Computed example of a mutant assay.
Amino acid sequence: MDEAFGGSQTRASILTAVRALKDVASDNGLAGGGNAGAFSNAIDNFAGVQFEDAIAAARSLAEVDGTECLPHLGRGRRAAVTAGRDLKRTAEAFLQSVETNLQSFVAQFRAENDKVEDSISSAEASLIAIATSLSDLTPPDEEPVRAA
């Protein structure tokens, strides 16, 4: 859990961060691929568990030897561990979906930009051809029109 959320994060700060992430991605049209619903469910599940208690118990187990840890194992902290693990897993899937969508949008915008650049080049070539044609039509006693 420390690796996923940092060693000093509280349930409230984790919830604030993941909800903000989901909102930003959703508001910008990046939350697709079917992961948003699972991510929302994981956030809701995580909101209902005693995360700090489970983390404190897990840390205390690391300091206890042998059978002294048995009372700590008997407490019902499985839900918090499962909710934290699910939140981490669904957040990673959600972020992967967001990244895929971003890459798709970037490719789409590049393709559209290339089309615009091609149109500008074509228009420029047409204007040069028109200017050349006009200069060929200039009467001999007038100065020819020069292409820019």
Rank of each mutant, 00 (worst) to 15 (best):
A91E: 13
L95G: 08
A93Y: 04
A4K: 05
N45A: 15
L127P: 00
S60P: 00
N101V: 01
G34C: 03
V24Q: 09
N45D: 14
F109K: 15
L137E: 09
F5C: 04
L137I: 03
T90M: 03
T16N: 15
F105V: 11
N101K: 14
N45W: 10
N45E: 13
L21E: 15
A93E: 06
R89S: 09
K88D: 08
A58C: 13
A57I: 01
R146E: 12
S135C: 00
E143T: 06
T90G: 03
S122L: 11
P144C: 14
R75V: 08
V145C: 07
R146L: 12
E142P: 01
A57F: 01
A83M: 01
S133P: 00
H72I: 09
S122T: 09
N28M: 11
S40E: 12
L137G: 07
G66Y: 12
F51G: 06
T100K: 12
L102Y: 05
Q108I: 00
N35E: 15
G74C: 03
A123E: 05
S13Y: 05
A42F: 05
T100A: 09
I128N: 13
G6V: 07
S133M: 06
S60K: 04
S40F: 03
G66L: 04
T16S: 15
L87G: 03
